[in-house]
């Protein structure tokens, strides 16, 4: 049973991530008075890309060829350790479980590994667009890490554990009055989510203006199956962040066992929480202009300061 569950946990996030992207796009379309594409369209897009031939730049090296695989692998591996409907940690044999992957520092740094290779791939083709895309991406990533790390640290200190599933379990039993710093930390986490996943107001995922791009500029040279992997990995990362945000900072409802009714309840609550987050993202993207590049660090430092404030509150009381 647990083996089956473990396998599901590994493929869960890659399986549902295109749907999440489709939902955001649909919500944005509705807010712009458009009908918008069907929420399952990203699946068709990925399938179409996998069937296409590829063209690789002559100036690119093996880094370009291998980067999509590394980036996608990282998102699958981290995604396997993120609690979605249950806090049980997947394991394959007694003694070999995914527990070490669920340490929040390991998660943050593994995702950063993906970003590292993405930035290298952006520089590999020697186009000016990829070059400045990588520069901007590393700037955002370096500064967002503060807010991201500290917001997760707040949850870790409040729950007394460094592993995400244990954090969720402990936080579920925390009294409401102690939740205030966690809400502040969640704000910091949300800003880091927007920054790390290249959403508004940091980056525009649907722009065609190369000079303004961050993420899209780095994958400009990709086509065919490698582009599909890159886009899928981006979706995976978004779901990882959304799931972490929903389940750590609003931990109620996540099942502690594999019983049917607990899982069902957890599933419903998970859908509600993530639905709210997806709506927030779509709302921000439809009603705000993108920040000028040099205003983004102010936003990221705000995220950091919020998280540090939350941390101070937690360790003082």
């Amino acid at each position: 049973m647990t083996l089956f569950f473990s396998l599901i946990q590994i493929v869960a996030i890659p399986a549902i991530s295109p749907l999440f992207v489709g939902i955001i796009r649909k919500l944005k379309a509705r807010m712009q008075s458009r009908v918008g594409a069907d929420i399952f369209q990203p699946y068709r897009d990925l399938s179409k890309l996998f069937k296409k031939d590829e063209i690789i730049s002559k100036d690119a090296s093996w880094i370009t060829k291998i980067a999509p695989y590394i980036i996608f692998t990282v998102t699958v591996v981290v995604g396997a350790a993120v609690p979605i409907v249950t806090t049980i940690i997947p394991s394959f044999t007694p003694g070999f479980s995914l527990l070490p992957l669920s340490d929040f520092i390991v998660m943050v740094y593994l995702l950063a590994l993906g970003t590292f290779f993405l930035a290298l791939a952006g520089m590999d083709s020697g186009s000016g667009f990829g070059g400045f895309g990588s520069s901007r991406e590393m700037m955002v990533a370096a500064l967002a890490e503060g807010g991201l790390f500290f917001s997760l640290l707040v949850a870790s200190v409040a729950s007394g554990s460094g592993h995400v599933p244990s954090m969720v379990v402990s936080l579920q039993t925390l009294p409401f009055t102690s939740f205030m710093p966690l809400i502040v930390a969640f704000l910091a986490f949300f800003i880091a989510l927007l920054a790390e996943n290249n959403r508004f107001p940091v980056d525009n995922p649907s722009t065609h203006l190369e000079l303004t791009m961050i993420h899209e500029a780095m994958i400009l040279e990709y086509s065919g199956k490698r582009l599909a992997l890159m886009e899928w990995a981006t979706a995976n990362k978004l779901v990882i962040f959304i799931a972490l945000g929903a389940n750590i900072f609003f931990p109620w409802g996540v099942a502690a066992s594999l019983e049917g009714h607990a899982i069902l309840l957890a599933f419903v609550l998970f859908s509600l929480k993530t639905g709210a987050l997806l709506f927030s993202i779509a709302f921000i993207e439809s009603t705000m202009a993108k920040f000028r590049v040099f205003r983004v660090p102010d936003l990221l430092f705000t995220s950091f300061v919020l998280a540090v404030t939350a941390l101070c509150i937690i360790i003082t009381f």
Partner: peptide, 8 residues
């Protein structure tokens, strides 16, 4: 699927 090489 073919993989071909071209200019950046």
């Amino acid at each position: 699927r073919k993989v071909s090489y071209g200019r950046t």
